[in-house]
Design a protein around this nucleic acid. Structure first.
Lengths: 340, 340
DNA sequence: CTCGGGTTCTGAACCGTTACGGTTCCTGCA
DNA sequence: TGCAGGAACCGTAACGGTTCAGAACCCGAG
């Protein structure tokens, strides 16, 4: 029976035809995929666990690029891609347990998320992405520290010493406002944390007291959030000459807010982003481009290529500082304080 | 055993603790999801079959919105969402057979796609979306004919009688160029076909000989495609006063091309789109807005709500003509021919 | 002491497939 | 005619969980 469907070479065409014929007559719908999976121990699909908020994954252009890359890798291998329902409110870890998949890609999930713990309990390979490396797990990501340091060096080189920072959510709890140094240090979203600490290091080295730098956090990742965060940062310290944003979306929002306030960019205010999404490049934003599609593709390939579980593999992606038209030297009034 | 994990109330806490303890000691990773699925006849996931080209689904803002809505519906129901790998080149119908899912959402798949046939063979519920209604299948979609007729009426009302049309691929084979009336009639992508035939009807009624209307087809769905298609249409008939595009992406490309040629929109050339993607609204494009997210959500809900298989359900979505700044009366030279 | 009723626990059947080994049958060759 | 060898076919045992029937046990009432 099984052979008739799956191994036509194992039996005569005549018998095969007869089997299929009667099968159809009996209303047999073909081999059951689940039973097959049980027997062969292959589900034929990869699970994707992603950030708490599912909508984020589809609204953020970077995340969509990642998803596309991952989907392409799966398609190439003839594997399905299953989005695991992991809503943040009801901590429905069961969904992870129920998922019939051969492995997981975990994308930008906070370290303390119970779903992540549930994934790690499953006896299947796991690749983490845009997260801290975990013991014995394959990893894909950019060098966030190095990338944001390129931005910092660029700004420091231009002469900026008084800056503000706009960042995305740092922990699962909502906090729309300034983030204390304490909160920065305890951030559970690794990417944001890495970018902030690297910024702090670099500007501290350049003589800036990081505790005086306003770091404004936003829970939602939208243009509006960026705009209001920019307003808040400028309110806290109107002397700011540069706004460093940890994402392009926030930066584009900040750009809009600057426009509304009649601030010229970059003459009055320098604004930088991070991610390299199409809209940012179109707006001429100074930002860091990262290969989103490649990131997804790499994660998928890593998971699908059979690995020796002994040595976890790390794929570090190249990033590139794009110097746009939104960064320039600080306005002259400020420059005076640091100039000759 | 099963009870220990799934029905804590069915056995004493003491025994339960003991069972879990020894299970852990033996390295038992918890109930196997596939075996559970086999027994319970529930996979806990929904399959999504979409247009040949997977990248399209992630690059088209409308499709991403649809995907988001569908994913949200699945998440609400605690169901996974599995993207079926259906690459167009290798006709890998096996992927449909192998997918462990409780049902399928089929989105904008050409009628003659073998994957669609394979889905219909599976004994699970199916919802089709942005496709022709199929016998006994739930259906979700806008009223494409009515929606595009609103555009046509708008243009006819403004006085346009000499138009060009830009459309997406009509069939699986590549054809970058004018589409004959024959090809329009045989189109296997339902949405495109519906829009074209409705346009033809409406303009014919207004006295336009449809066979003289240049309809330019593009295989890829990008701004560049839109631009080059616009160029081609204007070359075929330079007297055109309006370009009707069956998608916003094409329209935005046409807008760019018009700019490059020094044509003022709408004074020299009217351009309309279809879909209502954010970029289009930002550009002030005259277009038809359709509720992408709701479409996905409706499809998901339809599939997940248990239906009586006797009566297929149809959900028709509302669309809305958005009159932007890219449509106006035809340029006066032309108007002369139809004016008083 | 026995019986009935309720709770806790055990064991076996079943879900539908694939892998594998065994059996039959046929062909070719000595 | 006998036999080896291979192709074609068939039967059966897992795979790992859920479910359900019934065994075992406990307790209080008659």
């Amino acid at each position: 029976m099984s052979n008739a469907y799956n191994r036509p070479d194992q039996l005569s065409p005549e018998l095969r035809k007869r089997v299929l014929e009667t099968a159809r007559r009996l209303g047999y719908p073909g081999p059951d995929p689940v039973a097959r999976s049980l027997r062969t121990r292959k589900a034929g699909a990869v699970g994707l666990l992603l950030t708490e908020n599912l909508s984020y994954a589809f609204r953020d252009p970077g995340a969509v690029g990642f998803l596309e890359g991952l989907a392409l890798a799966c398609e190439d291998a003839g594997q399905g891609l299953t989005l695991i329902p992991a809503s943040p409110e009801r901590e429905d870890v069961a969904s992870v347990h129920r998922a019939g998949v051969d492995g997981f890609v975990v994308y930008s999930v906070p370290e303390d998320d119970p779903h992540l713990a549930a994934v790690l309990e499953r006896p299947v390979p796991v690749v983490v992405c845009d997260q801290p490396r975990l013991d014995n797990l394959d990893w894909v990501g950019p060098d966030d520290r190095k990338a944001i340091k390129a931005v910092a060096d660029h700004l420091i080189g231009l002469g900026h010493r008084r800056i503000g920072v706009l960042c995305m959510r740092l922990a699962r709890g909502r906090n729309d406002g300034p983030a204390t140094v304490q909160r920065q240090a305890n951030a559970s979203f690794h990417v944001q944390k890495a970018r902030l600490t690297a910024l702090a290091e670099e500007f501290s080295e350049a003589g800036v007291d990081w505790t005086t730098v306003p770091v404004v956090e936003r829970f939602d990742h939208t243009l509006d959030s960026g705009a209001s965060a920019a307003a808040q940062a400028l309110e806290i310290d109107p002397e700011i000459t540069a706004l460093v944003c940890t994402s392009d979306i926030l930066a584009l929002g900040a750009l809009r807010e600057a426009g509304n306030r009649g601030l010229r960019v970059p003459e009055d205010l320098t604004i930088t982003g991070f991610d390299g999404i199409p809209d940012a490049e179109r707006a001429g934003l100074t930002t860091v481009r990262q290969p989103w599609l490649e990131k997804g593709r790499a994660a998928g390939r890593l998971l699908l290529e059979t690995a020796e579980p002994s040595r976890p593999r790390h794929i570090q992606l190249e990033t590139q500082l794009i110097t746009g038209t939104t960064s320039g030297p600080p306005r002259s009034g400020e420059e005076f304080w640091f100039g000759p």
